[in-house]
Amino acid sequence: MKRRLAPILLTALSLLLIAFLAEPKLFEPLFRPLVQANAPAIYVQANLLSLTLSHIAIMAMATGAAIVIAGTLAILVTRPFGQEFLPLSRSIVNIGQTLPPVAVLALAVPIMGFGEKPTLIALFLYALLPIFENTLTGLTTLPHAVMEAARGTGMTGFQRLWRIELPLALPAILAGIRLSAVISLSTATIGSTVAAKTLGEVIIAGLQSNNIAFILQGGLIVAALAVLIHSTLSMLEAKAARQTGR
């Protein structure tokens, strides 16, 4: 029952989000009681759909870069020639957890200027650790019998990695990507403090003008996107787990 209900709820949430982004003024009666007289109930200083797409693009680029770098590092340290670099790799991917995104922004702005670039750097660093650790776990907990059988068939190291190891480790890898994507989506809101086009702009405008409706609009859009991304990647993760029997 729950499996059947979940797609229906996700579809309903997606349609509601699309409707709000396409015609936000239709929802004005819902937000009007939250604002003072003569104050705007819908954020119109920028197009909400444009801000949402920009927010998603920044998150996707940062997460995509983290997948490439963290995934490559995890693969290298699980090869015989790269095992000695595990401590160094862990130190690299832990940089994002050591320095908060706000600190990264403060350090990056003087070098890169205002805009999307400092935000991308902060989100990229923050997304490295979950992807690295999950990929590492997936590749180091493979069934021994399966790996021995693959070696017995004469597969090369690359063939084992591509045909056996990565497919079996896919559920764990997707779990790391899911975690990083949701964290990056939420954290991207701070990018507006350095002039990046994100939904944080709506939230900041609400805080500055004491407009609860603006704060809710920015927050609810981010929350809806987080639910959709989390649920979609969870379904892909569950499908991969069923296919691999892990």
Rank of each mutant, 00 (worst) to 15 (best):
A238V: 08
L10Q: 09
A37F: 13
S50I: 09
E133S: 09
A60K: 02
Q208L: 07
T153G: 04
T193E: 12
M61C: 09
G113F: 06
G71L: 05
M112C: 05
A150W: 01
L30D: 15
M1C: 07
A39H: 08
E23N: 12
F27D: 08
G138V: 04
I203L: 09
A22M: 11
L34T: 12
I42M: 02
A240L: 12
L76N: 06
S89W: 00
L99S: 11
A46F: 04
G71S: 11
I190A: 01
F124N: 01
P130E: 08
Q208M: 09
L53Q: 12
P100N: 07
A74P: 11
N94E: 15
A181T: 10
E237A: 06
R90Y: 09
I173M: 08
A46D: 14
I221G: 03
I212N: 14
K117P: 01
G154Q: 05
V146Y: 01
R4F: 11
E133F: 03
N210Y: 11
L16M: 14
I173C: 05
N38W: 05
P130C: 10
A74T: 10
E116Q: 09
L207V: 10
L136R: 05
F158D: 12
S14Q: 09
L233N: 12
I173F: 05
H144G: 08
I215Q: 07
A150K: 03
L166K: 06
V93W: 00
A106V: 09
G82E: 05
A150G: 08
L26W: 12
E23A: 11
I121R: 00
T11R: 02
L5N: 11
P33G: 14
I177V: 15
I229Q: 02
A70H: 03
V68Q: 11
L225C: 07
V68I: 15
T78F: 06
A241Q: 10
A213F: 02
P33L: 14
N47V: 02
A205N: 03
A108L: 06
L17Y: 05
S184D: 14
V109W: 06
V77W: 00
R151H: 12
L168V: 08
L13V: 07
L48E: 01
L228K: 09
L53P: 10
A196D: 11
L128P: 00
A188K: 01
A66Q: 06
A74I: 03
F158T: 15
P130D: 13
A41M: 10
R160P: 01
P167F: 08
G82P: 07
Q97L: 15
R79N: 14
V227G: 11
E133C: 04
L53K: 07
P29K: 14
T72K: 12
L88S: 14
A103S: 13
M61I: 13
Q208F: 03
L15Q: 08
A19M: 07
G154S: 03
V104I: 14
L179H: 06
